[in-house]
Amino acid sequence: MRKSLPFTKPLAYGQQYYAFPLGILASHPQANDWVLSNYLQVAYVTDPSIGIDFSFYLYDYSISPWLETLKLNRELANAQSGGVNGLVRTAISADFYVYLTLNERYVPERLRYDQGLDGLHDVLVRGVDDEADVFEILGYDRNQVFRSSTVPQDELAVAYHSVGRDPFFEVPLTLYRFNPRGTYELDLQFIRQSLIEYLESFNTSLHFRALRTPWDLVYGMATYEELEKYIDRYARREVEYDILNLHTLWEHKRLMLARLTRCAQSAPALAELVAPYQRVERLAWALRLTMMAHGDAPQKSFMNEAAPILHAVRDTERKLLTQAVGALDHSGGA
Rank of each mutant, 00 (worst) to 15 (best):
P172W: 00
N38K: 12
G82S: 08
M303N: 13
Y106R: 00
T90A: 13
L199I: 06
R318H: 10
A12N: 07
D130C: 03
L211C: 06
K3P: 00
L100Q: 02
Q189S: 12
I52Y: 05
Y59E: 14
Y57D: 10
S49K: 12
N78E: 03
F54Y: 15
Y234G: 10
F146V: 02
S37E: 01
E272V: 15
L206R: 11
K9E: 10
I63C: 04
R236C: 04
M256D: 08
A307L: 14
G14M: 00
L227R: 13
S4I: 15
V84P: 04
Y140T: 04
T261M: 06
R209G: 01
Y13K: 05
L102Q: 01
L76A: 11
T101R: 11
N304H: 10
F135G: 09
L124I: 11
Y18Q: 05
P29G: 02
N78T: 10
L260W: 11
T316H: 07
Q16N: 13
A258R: 11
Q30D: 10
A269H: 03
N179I: 02
L287R: 00
A307W: 09
Y57A: 02
L67Y: 10
V280P: 08
P6L: 05
P48R: 04
A210P: 01
S62C: 07
Y224C: 07
Y44H: 14
L186E: 05
Q144D: 07
T183D: 06
L22D: 07
V134G: 02
A235G: 15
L320D: 03
A77L: 02
E272Y: 08
A79P: 00
H207S: 06
Q15E: 12
E200K: 12
V163P: 08
L40F: 09
F54A: 01
P172R: 01
T90V: 05
L22P: 09
S149W: 08
Y39V: 03
P108G: 00
I309R: 15
L244A: 05
A222L: 04
P48Y: 00
L188W: 10
E75M: 08
G23H: 09
A157S: 13
W34D: 04
T46G: 04
F135H: 08
A284Y: 07
E272L: 10
Q15S: 11
P172D: 12
V42Y: 05
R279M: 11
T183R: 15
Y106V: 04
A31V: 08
S301A: 15
V42H: 02
L195D: 00
I24L: 00
E305C: 03
S64C: 00
P214I: 01
E155S: 13
L173H: 05
F146L: 09
W250E: 08
R282T: 14
L102C: 10
P10M: 04
Y99I: 02
T223F: 03
G14S: 14
F7N: 04
I191D: 05
H252W: 05
